[in-house]
Design a protein around this nucleic acid. Structure first.
Lengths: 143, 143
DNA sequence: CGTACTTTGACAATCATTCTCAACAAGCCG
DNA sequence: CGGCTTGTTGAGAATGATTGTCAAAGTACG
């Protein structure tokens, strides 16, 4: 099988399961609420362990993925392929991430949205989505 | 260690090692030359095995990474974090990738380049780089 | 309380990628 | 041609993130 088969192809979660509110789910949500930058699932797991609310690693992954599919959390990948998560605002946006401290700023670029859609249409592509992340070194880290 | 530490931070290969031309290195290069879309390291390894020029998996990874650092190959990650590679043109560009068949078109967007740089500067970020990939369904796959 | 179903977590299992290290090939020198 | 020094290879072990397994626990609700 070529890798091309696994590109994309999401299965949309159209209000599938009832999704019960549990102690561990709220714990993960709170952990996410307590930090500003992107964290890995393992980070979240550690955070919860150090706090008074330990949650199994598998559950952290499950919850995080559920939140991502629900659109409440952003997930992106570091250059070495690790998934990192962060709570996000409702609107579509992109991220300006500091390479050294991870400080993140959400940015919007209507022009970019238009451009990607136009380019795709121009080449006959439909159902367009895109991913744009900007990396740099922030002011405080430049010292 | 928080995941934020491993964001970016490349080490540029300024003509380090002599880089000897070997049978396996040319084999990998040829395999890349023989396909148009993105392939995983494992795919390349399989390709070479099926052909008359088997190359160890570790070597495939080593060679592919070397090519990426040399700027001769593009590497990006599928949504599940797997690295996929493809030979690329010299100039900076982005990709329009078909979600189902993997067909890839290289696109350029000077406006996007300018926009990212401007946004970053505006927020005090320097040494800016960015990643932009567009996913969609191509014409032939829409049937 | 009792049944039906979801959730959890400890741990095993995957899977891509990297590391280890002994066997090898290449360039160079006399 | 031998020998030397050093980059290269590959088989297999090691790593590390992520997912699967499955019995035990939780929840909804009649």
């Amino acid at each position: 099988m070529t890798s091309t088969e696994k590109l994309g192809t999401e299965r949309m979660n159209t209000e599938r399961t009832p999704l019960r509110p549990t102690r561990q789910r709220t714990a993960v949500a709170q952990a996410l609420a307590s930090v500003d930058d992107f964290r890995s699932a393992q980070d979240i797991h550690d955070l919860l362990s150090r706090a008074e609310t330990p949650v199994g690693l598998a559950t952290v992954y499950r919850t995080l993925n559920a939140l991502v599919e629900a659109g409440e959390v952003d997930m992106l990948r570091t250059e070495d392929g690790e998934a990192i998560y962060r709570r996000c605002s409702e609107t579509h946006h992109h991220h300006l991430v500091c390479r050294s401290c991870g400080a993140t700023i959400e940015v919007e670029g209507p022009a970019v949205e238009r451009w990607t859609t136009a380019i795709a249409a121009e080449h006959g592509y439909s159902e367009v989505s895109h991913a744009l992340e900007i990396f740099g070194t922030c002011g405080s880290c430049r010292s």
